[in-house]
Design a protein around this nucleic acid. Structure first.
Lengths: 106, 106
DNA sequence: TGGCTCATTGGTAATATAACCAAATTACCA
DNA sequence: TGGTAATTTGGTTATATTACCAATGAGCCA
């Protein structure tokens, strides 16, 4: 395979990998409604602050969210709204898949 | 967090995780053009057959592709066309991100 | 300044992923 | 039936991911 083509697949995979975690999906969906500081997200998620911070750093690195420091707090915003369409398509597909499974069973 | 909500995030993450690999993205894009047998995909990818087979099993398990055996060969088909829209949105975002990076430098 | 809160970074251990080789399975055909 | 090709499965090793704790950095205010 072409080197440039490979690089493009790698770049896309990096972004998708950043989405590929339940906690980070929750973050994305919450940020799609409104911006949040790390502390709010930490409350919602119920994990250690450092864990949440690392998830956010990963999302930021992938270009999915952006951050802004205001006072002591850091607010995160969703930067890539098109991921939402995908997530809703995913939801639909999951429901369909479940229906199929059910049909197989009886 | 709610147990059911958590389960939904897990299910979505599973599908996205299945996409989160350069080789599997290549497979998805190729299958979006037409069905392919494992041997054809193996040629394109240039990895061991067993490696490709495992990538395909993962995609199938996630409900992204489906397979059909015809003779000795197994043909794979894309089952979730909406992933393509997402990939093109991703492409756009990557270009935008690159432009931003460039702007920061020069 | 000193102490408090919010957030990030470093370290470590447990788990998950991914590649290859080897072996097993399935279908075809001489 | 024996042999060959296409796939899958099992095993192993190297690497990546993730969670938590501890320590650090940054901003606020009494």
């Amino acid at each position: 395979m072409n080197k440039q083509t490979q690089a493009r697949y790698d770049a896309k995979a990096t972004v998708i990998k950043a989405m590929a975690h339940p906690t980070r999906l929750l973050i994305i969906e919450e940020l799609s409604k409104q911006e949040h500081c790390v502390c709010e997200l930490t409350d919602m998620i119920g994990a250690d602050t450092s864990t949440v911070s690392k998830h956010l750093a990963l999302l930021k690195n992938a270009g999915i969210v952006s951050d802004e420091k205001r006072g002591q707090m850091v607010f995160y915003t969703l930067k890539m709204p098109c991921v939402l369409k995908f997530l809703s398509c995913l939801e639909t597909t999951l429901i369909e898949n479940a229906r199929e499974q059910l049909a197989l069973v009886g």
